[in-house]
């Protein structure tokens, strides 16, 4: 897949959204179009991994653990820096959301409407950054860049990673995204607990 295709399709989607049409909200029996496309993608990636007969090795696990730690350490440092820059402690849980915008926004909305909106957009932008910039990565940076995708590397950004970095890296990305997804609620909650007066 060419980089210009990603940008062109994203811009087309943005134009559709500006017309007031949110394609993700189109649904059937409680499931949205986004759910169907996501599940189809995950199924195809599973099919691909099964076809390759890849096995989770020591290296996959070691790289995944390092990337999970990097995602949270980097997000925490970023959150603390934003706390100083924007003069609000809410920047910390927002940054720790690691791309999981639906959960982080819903949780932060409860304490601040403004910061709930920021949590939604900031984490959505993180997903977009990964989607739009991942095709530009090369060599060793392809594994390190998985950290940008955060929780989304187990679903929405996984296909981009699979297409540009191959099956081995997509396996690492899935493990990373899955564990990050499990840890985000715990860490966001802990951060909110710490900053609450």
């Amino acid at each position: 897949m060419k980089y210009w295709q990603v940008i062109a399709v994203f811009l087309l989607g943005t134009c559709v959204g500006l017309l007031g049409i949110d394609l993700s909200s189109i649904g059937l029996k409680g499931y949205t179009l986004l759910d169907f496309v996501l599940m189809a993608l995950i199924f195809l990636i599973g099919l691909d991994l099964g076809r390759m007969r890849l096995k989770i090795g020591h290296r996959h696990l070691r790289v995944s653990v390092v990337l999970i730690a990097s995602t949270f350490i980097g997000s925490l440092i970023g959150g603390l820096l934003c706390y100083l820059l924007l003069k609000s402690p809410y920047a910390i849980p927002v940054a720790l959301g690691s791309g999981w915008y639906s959960y982080t926004a819903a949780r932060v909305f409860k304490i601040s409407v403004r910061w709930g909106a920021i949590a939604l957009i900031a984490n959505m932008l993180r997903e977009l950054l990964c989607m739009l910039l991942y095709p530009l990565t090369k060599g060793g940076l392809r594994e390190a860049f998985i950290s940008v995708g955060g929780a989304t590397t187990m679903d929405t950004t996984l296909p981009i990673i699979r297409l540009h970095a191959g099956e081995e890296t997509s396996l690492i990305a899935f493990i990373h995204g899955f564990i990050v997804t499990l840890l985000v609620p715990v860490l966001v909650e802990a951060a909110i607990e710490l900053i609450s007066p």
């Binding site: 087309l12 943005t14 559709v16 959204g17 500006l18 049409i21 949110d22 909106a117 920021i118 959505m124």
Partner: peptide, 30 residues
């Protein structure tokens, strides 16, 4: 998927929101 996410992004009001919220969001995500 990218088409759907693009539409979701702009339909969420992120672009129309402008100003401070978008600026702060860009700073945090970057």
């Amino acid at each position: 998927l990218i088409l759907i996410i693009g539409s979701k992004f702009s339909a969420s009001g992120a672009i129309a929101e402008g100003g401070a919220i978008l600026r702060d969001s860009i700073i945090i995500s970057f």
